[in-house]
Design a protein around this nucleic acid. Sequence first.
RNA 1: GCCAACAUAGCUCAGGGGUAGAGCAGCUGAUUCGUAAUCAGCAGGUCGUGGGUUCAAUUCCCACUGUUGGCUCCA
Length: 639
Amino acid sequence: MSQIAVTLPDGSRRELASGATGLDLAKALSQALARDALCIEVDGQLTDLHLPLKDGATVRLLTFDDPKGVNTFRHSSAHLLAQAVVALFPDAKPTIGPVVDEGFYYDFAHPPFTESDLEKIEAKMRELVKAALPFRRFEVDQATAKTVFADNAFKVELIEGFEEGSSYYTQGDTFKDLCRGPHVQHTGQLKSFKLTKLASAYWRGKPQNPSLQRIYGISFPKKEQLDEHLARLEEQKKRDHRKIGQEMDLFSFQDEGPGFPFWHASGMILQNQILGFWRAEHEALGYHEIKTPMMLNEELWHRSGHYANYKDNMYFTEIDEQGFAVKPMNCPGGLLVYNFKRHSYRELPLKVAELGLVHRHELSGVLHGLFRVRMFTQDDAHIFCTPDQLGPVIEEVLHLVQRFYSAFGFEDVHIELSTRPTEKFIGEIAQWEQAEASLQGTLERMGITYKLNPGDGAFYGPKIDFHIKDCMKRSWQCGTIQLDFNLPNRLGARYVGPDNELHPPLMIHRAIMGSLERFIGILTEHYAGKFPLWLAPVQAMVLPVSDKFLDYGAEVVKKLRAAGLRAKLDERNETLGKKLRDAQLARVNYQLVIGEREADDGTVSVRTRANRQLGTLSVESFVGRCEVEVRERRLPEGE
RNA sequence: GCCAACAUAGCUCAGGGGUAGAGCAGCUGAUUCGUAAUCAGCAGGUCGUGGGUUCAAUUCCCACUGUUGGCUCCA
């Protein structure tokens, strides 16, 4: 047979010479495709372009535009990295080099690398790119594979773990690496890359295994894409909430309390504004707010099951010879309040909110600004209801969550539904299925798109998680709705039904922000510290053109404060330019310049943080304008 | 917790085996200023903590504390 035919994604057929490869197909289609194609999908199987095509196959050429193409590209980049490392450090043993969300990494058995090693490795990689070494695939049986990689115990271990034979790839004459593939055509395609981080990691992630040196990198086909990526990282660094938090005096961390944030006055304004909004939203829906103690008798945590499952993350102490634990969660305390009196079915659904300060002992190495702390405020609520009420209750929470996020400008919300784990779960399967159907039905009725994670639920119930995207396209899991078939039983929660019998209520844990502290961290980076007026710690700075107008300035500030605005007077003996600059750098929403004209007319000259002149306004009309902006919780525009 | 790097003035950072430096912030004074940095002067540090080496340590070594980046992604 001298001809084969393949089907292309658009359904058309293409005839090729027998033995033609994916690359031949790409060449036949277009010059650009021959250059940009990274790998090919043949009957749903990813494979290499240099391999012959099967007659009658359905094929799809993949470029960097396809996520699978990105994967192949970055994976090949990891191999390029390994090749460079081995060339420079012949003793280094490559282990694994997978693709991750932000690029790729490769782990080597080798003493720690230094930053200057990274530069050398990058230079070697560029050399190898220039050489445009082809990737070639070889399939071998296990025994052969073991001889090929006999000098690398890690690879041998991997090979021993494989069910079938294995494959390896060469890049030029001197480098080969065990790999499932596929890979790009040649190293010349892997032009734009950057090694970003050095780290150590354990072989297979287990602390008892040898420690490996991990090198992280990122790569793109085009330099502009790399530059754009690096610019984005730069922007993220500029917006780092730890840096802005320091600049704006929002919070601090002290050696005396690692992982325990100290909230400064400006940061408390953010907290109080957010919580004011939060409370208003909850009150409107008939939530009751409670507050339970930070420390409770250890015996409660045994009964609740937290001791058994969570004690490594809890803080313990002793009071009057009794063991006590600092609460890592609010639910047991909340249930004590629920159990304090008898409840009727007529009270359900009962919605009980708690802004609970919880402490969790996180490993010292994972602490990270406000994003990972050991003490935080959960915007918790527990809803007690009957199974029949589940749908409407969930619908109300979904609306609330979306309204809440949208107030901060988070419109891109991604929702995931996690269902019963296959093993290790409590409760009846029928109960799970009813609840899952109810959650799923509600999501679908509301026309919400969501991702289903079968088996990912907690052992005590299914859950819905909310992920928000910040303006830098980073995703953050914040809100959660978790059904709990466990705790009401463990702690004996009941209500009296219409049948005058006692029944366990269905308990729902839910949070919108998750952690207030972390949410403020996210907001800080999302807004780059340029908070909307309703949140801003300092909303207006009054700037006298000279200290002759300090008295009038004080009068203006007094009026603004009387109207509920957070205003300050810059009393320093500085030039106007200096005061403007400092107010701008302090991210104050409005700069109010006052001089002779304004003092005479009772006005202020208004300049916005976005550097727009609003002209001269009477103090009253400026206040009116701000009141509207605050009431509507208007978001900053184009700053 | 583990691996690595780092810790110098309120902040950002330079320096280096022999009495510690800059810019900004602060204070004092001059200037009285119209939309992103006025000028001059002053003050400010047990160089994270503890130990060791040395005639001498902030600098070199060790430990501790804290911070930073990693520690799920499987050839």
